[in-house]
Design a protein around this nucleic acid. Structure first.
Length: 673
RNA sequence: GGCGAGGUAGCUCAGCCGGUUAGAGCGCAGCACUCAUAAUGCUGAGGUCGGGGAUUCGAGCUCCCCCCUCGCUACCA
């Protein structure tokens, strides 16, 4: 769990829920651990424990971190629970029985020694780009290149070390192509969704051939067994079972009346997620729910974009992250500072950057200087002049109007999921307080007009009382401190009380003053930056790295070829017909970034070859070059071009390509042996 | 290449159906104040709104072309 997770979904969700609770709305805040991802089984193997032990450990760690940061789930369940297994199985069975699925056979990599199918992550081999010998089937961790298992040189199974072979297997697919009209209709009712979310969905629906059938089962041994006959050794696709977890966890929370949360048209279901989950929450899960028929679908999915860290993508595997459990140790009792920073800089409309310098700035010049300082000024003055009692005065109508306006602004922003704006309006209340003090100068009026001083401080105290209510969704720990300082916990104020400029009665004894926030000094920030720089040196952060770090495994429907053994016989080699040829012409291929269409003089004929080198060479520089060609490669149609043969090139460490050419020009068509 | 989301002051972002001198917070500069964690308040400097063209009486906002960032996707035999 790192700051990206918090900023992306848990924090906004918590703020929204706390706001609703403060408004006395009937709300349930449901979440849980998704425990069936393939990475879990890999960690388990690495550590020599069972997947269950791994998820037990992380479920506890994550649950604790959430609690520490004040993420106020009503239930934090887990997908390894019995209730979830039952719920997800029932869900699958219903779809299965009513014929919602299509049965399909596909080829998957299989480990004959371990006797099981392999997820991409279970296949390692040599990276074709950087020669790292331990690249995974979905990504090379060293250079960041995104791969598919077939890209690997000498692929081998991490289970047994043997070379995997392809094998046919049966799985059940959700025909999303057929459900597309339903999904489109669903989306058409929600054109008010955030543009990044709505646009993303349209992109899925409209690009290419639209939605494709997706397998809802996998050949793995960790997960929920597929509850139908003939499905031994198969489990539910983690993205099938994970969202059903929301239902399971609701059942866990409300064993008796969970249904009203999922089957009542008046219930508003809202998913708070990161942008990597949009397709699952806005398309696949709704499709599943509609196909099932008994459940409501999400009313809104205010997904956030990504949070970067000091200019680079957050990466778990590269340890480029600020971990919540470490933050808690190094910034003790500063949960609200992080909540504030992440909320005021949340990636609401586009990817955003978290920097420690920013964190320090927000703490020092906003939380300390504006909010903390205002509260402290008022408490100090009231203690000094009025023995810590709320002075005699009546409600100020101007102040009441102002507080009322602010309350509306905060409320409206929150209801539109504009958390940054909402928080800024809360801070404006504190700013107003500072202005009040500066203008009324109670430290001056006390000399000859104690009554006026009392009026000023009465108003100032009421502002703090309002702040205690308004900041609670964002800064719950601060709100609690404010209540201690105001000695106001017993009043149990909710949102309804905000906007009242006479919340605390004259004569009310305030509690003890304490500082809300401390300054964060430069050296503290430097330590954090230093810490990150160290990981940058140890594990360089690759700029172009494609972070494939979603919990769920990548879809493994991709057709895969048989793995090769590392040694070949001379006969194998002799099958190759390698020849020299001279490039005559070269031109770009329309609508393809990487392709060049070449004509090559082979001596005995001129042939057309398509080659994926457009990003390395300009077409003009190629004619006249003599190159090595695999002449007897089966022809293949690429982007409408009949390609006959393949040009050989070497690729260096930087990924740069070099032609394999003879030292002296030779006859075209000469054999290479 | 296709689709989607962005590109607005040093930084982080607002800017509704196009309407007069483009806004906020932070940072920066100056002034004021001293109750306060040298905190606060006021004032100010700072932008040819990614570039070019078009429509319009008028465009940050509409249309076309191009560039850059992010995501998905196609292409690599």
């Amino acid at each position: 769990m790192h700051i990206g997770h918090l900023a992306g979904c848990y924090l906004p969700a918590d703020i929204y829920v706390r706001y609703l609770r403060s408004n006395k709305k009937d709300v349930a805040f449901i979440s849980g651990s998704d425990e069936h991802g393939v990475p879990i089984t890999i960690s388990a193997r690495k550590e020599g424990v069972t997947p269950q032990q791994i998820v037990d450990k992380y479920h506890k760690i994550m649950g604790d971190a959430f609690k520490e940061f004040g993420i106020s789930f009503d239930v934090y369940g887990r997908t390894s629970s019995k209730i979830h297994h039952d719920t997800a199985s029932d869900f699958f069975r219903k779809l299965y029985n009513q014929g919602s699925f299509e049965e399909k056979e596909t080829e998957q990599y299989f480990d004959e020694q371990a006797n099981q199918f392999l997820a991409d992550r279970y296949i390692v081999g040599t990276c074709p780009v950087c020669a790292n010998e331990n690249a995974y089937g979905d990504q090379c961790e060293k250079c960041g290149t995104s791969l598919s298992p077939t890209d690997l040189i000498n692929p081998r199974s991490t289970l047994s070390g043997s070379a995997p072979v392809k094998r046919m297997t049966k799985n059940w697919f959700l025909p999303l192509n057929k459900l597309q009209p339903k999904v489109e209709q669903y989306l058409s009712k929600h054109t008010d969704w955030k543009s990044n979310v709505y646009g993303q969905c349209k992109s899925w629906l409209e690009s290419g051939d639209g939605l494709q059938p997706r397998s809802m089962t996998r050949d793995l041994d960790w997960g929920i067994p597929v509850p139908v006959e003939g499905a031994e050794g198969k489990v539910l696709y983690v993205w099938f079972d994970a969202p059903i977890g929301y239902i399971s966890n609701t059942k866990e929370l409300f064993p008796n009346d969970w249904e009203k949360w999922w089957k009542d048209e008046d219930t508003r279901l809202i998913h708070f997620i990161g942008k990597d989950n949009i397709v699952f929450h806005c398309i696949i899960f709704p499709a599943m729910l509609m196909e099932h028929g008994e459940f409501i679908t999400a009313d809104n999915v205010p997904a956030n974009e990504f949070l970067n860290l000091e200019g680079d993508k957050i990466s778990t595997s590269r340890n480029w992250a600020v971990w919540l459990h470490e933050y808690l140790l190094e910034f003790k009792d500063k949960q609200d500072v992080l909540r504030y920073t992440l909320c005021s800089n949340a990636p609401e409309t586009k990817d955003n950057d978290f920097t420690w310098k920013d964190f320090q700035m927000k703490n020092n010049s906003e939380l300390v200087a504006i909010l903390g300082n205002f509260v402290n000024r008022v408490l100090v003055l009231t203690n000094k002049y009025f023995d810590g009692q709320v002075p005699q005065a009546t409600e100020c109508s101007d102040l009441k109007a102002f507080l009322g306006e602010q309350k509306v602004k905060v409320s409206e922003a929150l209801e539109q999921f504009k958390f940054r704006e909402a928080l800024a309006e809360v801070m404006n209340v504190a700013r107003h307080g500072n202005k009040l003090l500066t203008e009324k100068e109670p430290w001056k009026t006390i000399k000859d007009n104690k009554e006026q001083t009392g009026i000023t401080l009465f108003d100032a105290v009421q502002i703090i009382a309002n702040l205690a209510v308004l900041c609670e969704p964002f800064l719950p720990f601060t709100a609690q401190k404010l209540h201690q300082m105001l000695n106001s916990s017993q009043f149990n104020w909710g949102w309804a009380e905000a906007g009242n400029a006479a919340l605390l009665p004259s004569g009310h004894q305030l509690g003890e003053a304490q500082l809300l926030f401390d300054k964060v000094e430069d050296d503290v920030i430097e330590i954090q930056i230093e810490k990150l720089n160290k990981t940058r040196i140890e594990k360089p952060v690759v700029q172009k790295a494609k972070a494939k770090e979603t919990e769920a495994p990548k879809a493994t429907e991709t057709k895969v070829e048989a793995g090769e053994t590392s040694l070949i016989t001379f006969d194998d080699f002799a099958k190759l017909d390698l020849r020299l040829g001279t490039i005559l012409t070269a031109e770009r291929v329309e609508k393809a970034d990487k392709l060049l269409k070449l004509t090559v003089d082979m001596g005995y004929e001129v042939r057309t070859i398509a080659s994926g080198i457009a990003q390395h060479f300009q077409p003009e520089e190629l004619p006249g070059l003599q190159v090595c060609v695999v002449a007897n490669l089966a022809p293949r149609k690429i982007r409408g071009i009949e390609s006959k043969g393949m040009i050989l090139l070497s690729e260096d460490k930087e990924g740069k390509l070099h032609f394999i050419s003879p030292r002296e020009l030779t006859d075209n068509g000469s054999a290479v042996k």
